[in-house]
Design a protein around this nucleic acid. Structure first.
Lengths: 187, 187
DNA sequence: TTAAAATTGTGATGTTTGTCACACTAAAAC
DNA sequence: GTTTTAGTGTGACAAACATCACAATTTTAA
């Protein structure tokens, strides 16, 4: 488990074993079961999570009570309600397990302490944040330029494994179309 | 002009005058005219821009030649094709002036040098990147949960000044609807 | 194992939105 | 000042999509 995190960080910023031991001391290790909540809309957001194994969904519930998938978080992904996490405010989204999931969790004070004390990690977090920003922007472009059918094909191409792991209903909620429409798409 | 940039950074990370002078030495100062391109799709992306005054549009052109507004960049905004900028690849988007615009520009090597040599600035860039990521995610939520009409009202509420500065055609392109549909929205 | 719950496909129908067309206005260029 | 260009509103029609309903299947839980 530790090795996965180390290899993940090393891909961007190689660390010595001592440095990684220091990094690891800022995290806690947790296991959650399917359907468990890591973050509940309306509550505090104490942690940012690195997914070792399993699958999470980041969901936003609108006024009508309808759920929308803002993001899936698979192996090697970092996820949280970042807005609430960084500003120490109440969650606007929930983070819930689609499968049994194993994570490393880091609190905001540890995140900041680690960033300050080990510049390599601040660099790592900066690069991760930039990549997250770029990924979100690509999803926006997908909404601007593509029909539901095209967005579906793009998703299928980008994350082929997702289709064996999540229901069509959830995929539809991620794509921003109704379950029935997704069911009728050609491809 | 320099003062605007200093105040902007100071809001997140206060700098001494010496530190700011060091920061400033990594930027160049440029003026562009309406319709000028700062970034052209398909070409190299040498700079990331801080907008002092003026207004930019970040546009993505699809296969059919239709333009989509990924983002407006107003005063105090940082903008680039970040994906191409950070990976030193060709631009997938263009950045063009809607109004005469004044910017500070920073090349990637200066960005990295500045981050390394002045940890405060790495912290600043990290916070900015996180905020950018959060803003993009909010736009995704807006696409998932809201009709064209609701997205229009949200935009009107968030950036009321935009409506005196850009054409309805551009607003429609930002909202992801046709010009005609936007023209027919109630509100 | 059996009952309950969740998942999926599909028809019918109405709403929303895109596309094409044209007229009108305002601004910019000559 | 006149011509060109860009921006805007609106009608008519077609395509995309949402919603409601129901049946069939699979998964989960007792």
């Amino acid at each position: 488990m530790k090795e996965k995190l180390k290899e993940h960080i090393d891909k961007l910023i190689p660390l010595t074993d001592d440095e990684f031991a220091f990094v690891l001391s800022h995290f806690k290790f947790d296991k959650y079961n399917k359907n468990d909540f890591l973050i509940q809309q309306g509550e505090d957001v104490d942690y940012c999570y690195y997914v070792v194994t399993g699958l999470l969904k980041l969901i936003y519930m609108d006024q009508g009570g309808k759920q929308h998938i803002v993001s899936f978080a698979m192996e090697d992904w970092w996820e949280s309600d970042f807005s609430a996490y960084f500003t120490q405010s109440k969650a606007k989204m929930s983070l819930q397990c689609i499968e049994n999931t194993v994570v490393f969790s880091i609190g905001l004070s540890d995140y900041q302490k680690l960033s300050t004390e080990l510049p390599k990690m601040e660099r790592f977090f900066l690069q991760k944040s930039n990549l997250g920003h770029i990924a979100s922007q690509n999803r926006i472009i997908s909404f601007l330029t593509s029909s539901a059918n095209e967005r579906y094909e793009q998703l299928l191409k980008q994350y082929p494994t997702l289709f064996q792991r999540v229901s069509k209903t959830l995929l539809a909620s991620y794509l921003g179309v109704s379950r029935e429409t997704l069911s009728r798409l050609s491809s």
